[in-house]
Design a protein around this nucleic acid. Structure first.
Lengths: 214, 214, 214, 214
DNA sequence: TATGAATGAGGATTCATTCAT
DNA sequence: TATGAATGAATCCTCATTCAT
């Protein structure tokens, strides 16, 4: 269904008992959230309560673990994301509204995954870094392609190029999201801010609708 | 004059002969561009032709070197930036135009500094990471504060909140910049693209002016 | 019948189905040809298609497997060797001639065994090394004892001690064999060289006969 | 002077204080005498009383240490060997006599070196193993070439090819040496056996002289 | 018999930092 | 100031062996 992410279920680790597997993957994500180099396989095994040997039984190298985790994280988010988003809604601003709400929920549901994904900047001049970079770009292209496919551009003002209109809307979305997700803001505080964020988003939506729509 | 960045001239290293100092700082920046953890003090001393002992004579720890470099880089860019920007121009969109042009120039003039600044994501849960994060935020607040201070909001449509208008403009600026600065694009290719970028920026400016201005 | 090599048939592994047993033993020999330490039990089980547990069911330790294999290899060669050699021939030089021909044949017939035997230099200061060394010496003493037993020393010159004459002949044989078996010479090339080797051997035999015989 | 062995004095380790250097090299040789894989860098540093880091400061890898040691050992032996052997003596059997005596002395003087050289069988399918094998062959060719150059073949019987005569003599020498150097014989016992060995060697020499010389 | 997940001590290597000179 | 040898904890990874099933 999604050709970008290879079939994770083929991986050895998927034959492990789910609770043990989750213990390992969660511990690994948590550790990699500190950055690739800072992450220590020793910490991962300590945290997940397994032996050194077992970790390397399932993942031949630290890099393989990292790469698997990356794809796993993206797939987890992705599956639920597209499951819940209503792609029938063709107004991009309405769709954004949905996305924001959904994202807040997901960040709460899978905090470790988001922490990990945000941290994935494997600064290395080797193949793995390029591979991650390539996958991330492909992933983003795919997600954005789907998320903003079949947009009803007839709603937009006619005196500006529709693609540029979409760009401004997306830039605004992302800019706002980045500002809200700045590292000082601990994820735990999101919930009480739900109202505030929704309110602000609605203000941006109103602004953009007034200025960019017919 | 700039309270955010402590006085770099107080640092021991500033008493070194400028050419030797530059050799050290450039080597260090180049190395840290690979990421904090990947950077090796061995490489730095080898590249700059000094001894291990001397490096640690001037900077007590790797972290101190890194932090110094960070402030140093920001100050370098900053000084030149504000020197050249015309703060008399009160139209935010015109100011953006200036900034884009200037930034392209600076990236060419100081590629090592920009490579370093872009790479500064020291994902660590220790003091240095928080410190960097704090300084960066302060720096950005300061820069943006100055860069977009004294804006003529009377140019904006009156049916929307001026601060939100500024936000949309800045989000668009940054979104566009981020897209252009994606890691696949090598800095060397910028020059021939100067025209293309300027052209695109002008299109966004025209759009925003038409939609957000009176 | 042969007191040096303990009865291999008493070993647990001998109750396994012959084809499966051979798969295991061949895989193990091939692997140990890389050297004792370099040999990996993982590779052995992968190659022979059995499970880790089963290997250690039959051989309690890697060392036991190795020791068994050593004896097994020697016995394999030995049995066939003495089966084919004509111990009626009492002229040591003629006997050598037979041995050379036979050895070339056997190396072709059991390349894995010879590769393994040649590689058996388990340099370790533990029990197994001494044990191997002891068995090898005993084996050689036994083989040479039998191979050169009942030699007709009346053929030798009478002005020299017969044992010394035998020594010189054996040293020449072994020296020549070692030179021909140097590791650069791949076993595959033996066949076309059959003629050359036989020719050279005959020259040495002629020389020794002329000088050492009456 | 000897083109086979590259200049060892260029190596970093040669700038170390001789006593410390010898402590390291001796410890390493002793350890590698157990075989390449069995040798543990931990043991080497423990034995030589230096830190882990220092060993890898001088030798970037275990393999580099091993290769250096190999060349070093050969050079040590070589230099003294050719220094003491009288190449004026053109009778190969007399020369052998000298060599045997000299070798016994050297084995006593440098037991660690000989133990190491005898043990050097790095069974690995990588470049280093081939490199060692290549160097050893080149070394042997060189040594034998020099050791048995300018031999007076006019002393030999005329009814046999001189090269074959030389072969038989060398095979006998090596065969005898190998038998005496078998691993069960600890090096310490050599001294009291000096007489016995010399006596036996003289017997072989007498035999060969009677049979192979005019 | 047969499986293969699980163990954990041991191995080579790295690297920021110190210190005697 | 300046050097670079020296340190050793930390890192990733291996592998013979065990054990529950």
């Amino acid at each position: 269904m999604n050709p970008i992410i290879e079939n994770l279920n083929d991986h050895k680790i998927m034959s492990l008992a789910p609770d043990k597997r989750d213990r390992i993957l969660n511990a690994a994500m948590k550790e990699f959230a500190r950055g690739y180099k800072n992450a220590s396989t020793d910490n991962i095994v300590r945290e997940s309560g397994i032996s050194k040997g077992l970790l390397f039984h399932y993942f031949r190298t630290k890099k393989e673990l990292f790469l698997f985790l990356h794809d796993y994280a993206l797939q987890m988010v992705l599956a639920e994301f597209f499951n819940l988003i209503n792609l029938k809604e063709r107004d991009i601003l309405e769709r954004w509204r949905q996305i924001v709400l959904l994202k807040i929920d997901l960040v709460h549901k899978y905090p470790a995954i988001f922490a990990f994904v945000n941290a994935v900047y494997m600064k290395e001049n080797d193949e793995a870094a390029l591979e991650i970079s390539r996958r991330k770009t492909a992933f983003n292209d795919d997600v954005y392609g789907r998320l903003f496919s079949d947009i009803d551009t007839s709603l937009f003002r006619e005196d500006i190029e529709p693609q540029k209109t979409v760009d401004v809307i997306i830039f605004t979305m992302e800019g706002y999201a980045a500002r809200e997700a700045s590292p000082d803001k601990s994820l735990e505080d999101y919930e009480p801010e739900y109202e505030r964020i929704l309110n602000e988003v609605d203000q941006y939506i109103a602004l953009l609708r007034r200025c960019l729509y017919k």
